[in-house]
Design a protein around this nucleic acid. Structure first.
Length: 266
DNA sequence: ATGGTCGGTACCCGA
């Protein structure tokens, strides 16, 4: 079995012990983090190295954003397939040297988009442009035949049951029709297939994020599925199982996102 | 009716 975990950690330094616990308990081959919120010189590389994740590809900055790929399997050609080089620290890539077959892994953190679902609002515009930019990038990659996986915090909940109340959320950034439309186009341009919904029917509620502002996140359960794991067709036949580690939202000092696990047959 | 909480950083911004 080959296991990949994606997790928006909202500060890797604050939650290092929690991440190490997850690694110990769930033993992924590869861990993709978003919102690490630290420049590379302060990234806790040694702690992950000691935990067995000796292959690391990290791109951080001060205070915001930041993505990392931590792997027990060798990583090749880091960022040969990156969307843009070294600017906003929201996208890194590497080829994972899996014994069952190498695959290209993209770790993505799409901007949240602010509060105003208005095309003239700067943050919303930035989010939509970022998605368009990614779609164009993957369209240009179409000739590339290597099997691929895309994971990360995409900050869009596309399906009716990816949010707690579809009608109420239609005007809320993350579930607006224009975001969902651009999200679908991104998936189409990259030939991406939703590997989590492969296992969970579309009419079943499924969340990976619960706001910090909810007094009782668990009983209120006003979640959204913002974190995704996608594969291209060559990896579909290897899909084995998925898991969303909901309980971690109840950890001491939790991230507002929980880890998502995808297992591939080997 | 339009809240509420985080984390990093520096007294606010982004989520």
């Amino acid at each position: 079995m080959m296991r990949v975990i994606t997790w928006n950690i909202n500060s890797v330094r604050l939650r290092l012990a929690l991440v190490l616990d997850v690694l110990k308990q769930h033993k992924p081959d590869v861990l993709c983090l978003q919102e690490t919120k630290t420049p590379d010189e302060f990234f806790p590389a040694e702690a992950f190295h000691q935990a067995g994740y000796v292959h690391q590809h990290v791109a951080g900055m001060k205070g915001y954003n930041g993505v990392a790929i931590l792997s027990r399997l060798p990583l090749d050609k880091p960022d040969q397939y990156q969307r843009v080089k070294r600017d906003d620290k929201r996208h890194i890539s590497a080829v994972v040297k899996d014994p069952a077959g190498d695959f290209l892994l993209h770790n993505v953190y799409i901007p949240a988009g602010g509060y105003e679902a208005d095309l003239t609002a700067e943050k919303f515009r930035h989010k939509l442009d970022f998605v368009d930019d990614l779609a164009a990038f993957f369209a240009a990659q179409k000739q590339n035949k290597i099997p691929a996986m895309l994971v990360g915090d995409l900050n869009i909940a596309p399906l009716e049951h990816d949010v707690w109340d579809h009608k109420k959320m239609l005007k809320v950034v993350s579930h607006t029709p224009i975001e969902v439309e651009k999200f679908a186009r991104l998936a189409e341009q990259g030939s991406w297939y939703d590997a989590i919904r492969h296992f969970v029917p579309a009419d079943k509620k499924l969340y990976t994020w619960w706001s910090y502002r909810a007094a009782d996140w668990d009983t209120a359960d006003k979640g959204r599925r913002l974190d995704h794991m996608w594969v291209t067709p060559p990896l579909k036949e290897r899909l084995k199982s998925q898991a969303i580690l909901r309980d971690l939202r109840g950890a001491v000092q939790p991230s507002d996102h929980v880890p998502v696990i995808l297992d591939l047959k080997r």
